[in-house]
């Protein structure tokens, strides 16, 4: 793995990786091997906008799982539409390895779920300072005015409800090392279809 590739996978760069032995172990293997064997400790949501119809079932499933009611405004995954609905894009936390939110938190309220690699928020430790919402470059950790704490995707303990609710397979839960392959596969299929038609 070259330095450039490391940069791609870990925005924090090689220094961050050294602090993360599991990551090194993970990526010292051949990428293909990791994908096919699915042994990576990192799993993540993979979102494929070309399959999204904008139905928002993911938002309802997420808010139901976390709030016990249907409330898209409190969903940790959001779908955005562009050009009169030509494109619908699901968006959520990608569980950065070297998470800005986690680093920025002054009370240590954000921690790593050792089973999933998800970054979780401890409600008892969070003081609602919103430093994490400033630090996160993607906006995927949000302040909840009702609870006074921050909300983010927790991968539902390994059974993401948005994935279960998506009717088109636009959101999948895959080995973190496979996100590129999934898109490549889809793209390859489209390429072949394009050639056939």
């Amino acid at each position: 793995m070259t330095c450039a590739e490391v940069q791609l996978y870990a925005p924090g760069g090689i220094r961050g990786l050294l602090l993360e032995p599991v990551f090194l172990l993970h990526y010292s293997l051949e990428f293909k091997t990791i994908y096919s064997e699915g042994k990576s400790m990192y799993r993540s949501l993979h979102m494929e906008p070309s399959l999204c119809t904008g139905c928002l079932q993911c938002e309802m499933a997420c808010s139901f799982e976390h709030e016990g009611e249907f409330n898209p405004s409190r969903s940790r995954i959001r779908v955005f539409e562009f050009e009169h609905g030509k494109t619908s894009v699901p968006y959520s936390c990608t569980q950065c390895v070297e998470a800005w939110c986690m680093k920025a938190c002054p009370t240590g309220a954000i921690f790593v779920d050792s089973n999933l690699g998800a970054k979780l928020v401890s409600a008892s430790a969070c003081v609602g300072c919103k430093a994490c919402t400033t630090a996160c470059p993607f906006g995927t950790i949000e302040f909840n005015p009702v609870s006074g704490k921050v909300d983010k995707c927790d991968l539902c303990g390994g059974d993401p409800q948005c994935v279960a609710a998506c009717p088109t397979g636009a959101i999948t839960y895959v080995d973190a090392g496979a996100t590129g392959v999934v898109r490549m596969q889809l793209s390859a299929e489209q390429t072949v279809q394009g050639r056939a038609s």
């Binding site: 119809t53 904008g54 139905c55 928002l56 309802m60 030509k86 494109t87 009717p167 038609s197």
Partner: peptide
């Protein structure tokens, strides 16, 4: 159908809120 100039009228289908079918046309 894609015409000779490579134009296809339909770009994608689109769902209303909560819909499994997504019969809407873009």
């Amino acid at each position: 159908k894609t015409d000779q100039a490579g134009h296809r009228n339909l770009l994608t289908n689109k769902a209303c809120f909560g819909c499994t079918i997504a019969c809407g046309r873009i």
